[in-house]
């Protein structure tokens, strides 16, 4: 396993927004198969870091490599191929509001231009089944879905291209505890089944304890601690003491 590069490798990353340094000399390596929770206070730059990982923002300094490859450069074809290896679940779902659920999930598959309509239909139905939705939901428009269903459809779309890495921004935000637990179980099950590497940004300690193998704590502009939940709990820092109460 030593020969495979880490799925996510962030080295010496610094970000400045306006006059404020969001990240300074931030390093993080995530190995294949890990389920990592990125936690941190509000405004600590978690979502910024996630957006940098998927290439929506460029860091001021430092590099991010996914699967051992840089995010930018090497031409459109290489960049697109790299982006097809990870899936992103946005906080609000970011479903295409003018397309039905079916077309939303089929969209990335159609973009590949190598499957016929029947195959795409079968694949979409399979993804819907994976996220525990029914075939009749395929005909609905995003505006007709409940919050939990939007997340499921967005997850199905993120999984459409069989990604190796799944990035989730606040996957349980806006869901009630019951739905939230269900969604977390779903992510965990799919992660195990599909052998995904998962990185999620979350505030929810329950989500984190149920789902993750590793925790990365973002505070003081860098990754303060990275390890299993128990290892991170041992770390002595005001933020960690507040975030993880000593005794559950």
């Amino acid at each position: 396993m030593t020969t495979t590069p880490p799925v996510v490798a962030i080295s010496d990353l610094s970000t400045r927004l306006g006059e404020v340094w969001i990240h300074r000399h931030l390093n993080l390596d995530i190995a294949a198969g890990e389920l990592v929770a990125l936690v941190g206070g509000s405004g600590s730059g978690k979502t910024t870091l996630l957006r940098q990982m998927v290439g929506l923002l460029t860091p001021t300094q430092g590099t991010i490599r996914l699967f051992g490859e840089p995010l930018f450069g090497g031409g459109v074809v290489r960049e697109r191929a790299l982006r097809q290896r990870f899936g992103v679940l946005f906080q609000q779902g970011a479903l295409f509001s003018a397309l039905t659920v079916f077309d939303n999930i089929a969209f990335p598959l159609r973009e590949l231009r190598c499957f016929d309509a029947t195959t795409i239909r079968d694949l979409v139905m399979l993804k819907l089944e994976m996220v525990e939705l029914l075939p009749q939901h395929a005909l609905l428009l995003p505006a007709e879905l409940s919050g939990g269903m939007v997340k499921r459809v967005a997850l199905a779309r993120a999984l459409a291209l069989e990604p190796e890495l799944l990035l989730l921004d606040e996957p349980t935000a806006g869901l009630d505890p019951d739905r939230s637990a269900g969604f977390v179980r779903l992510i965990r099950r799919l992660g195990d089944e599909l052998g995904l590497t998962v990185l999620l940004v979350t505030h929810d300690v329950a989500t984190l304890a149920a789902l993750t193998t590793h925790v990365a704590v973002l505070a003081d502009q860098h990754i303060l601690a990275y390890g299993t939940l128990d290892e991170v709990r041992q770390f002595d820092h005001p933020f960690i003491r507040n975030f993880f109460p000593p005794q559950r």
Partner: peptide
């Protein structure tokens, strides 16, 4: 899983 998806009644 594929078999289960096919058992679902079509929309």
């Amino acid at each position: 899983r594929i078999a289960a998806a096919e058992r679902e009644p079509a929309a």
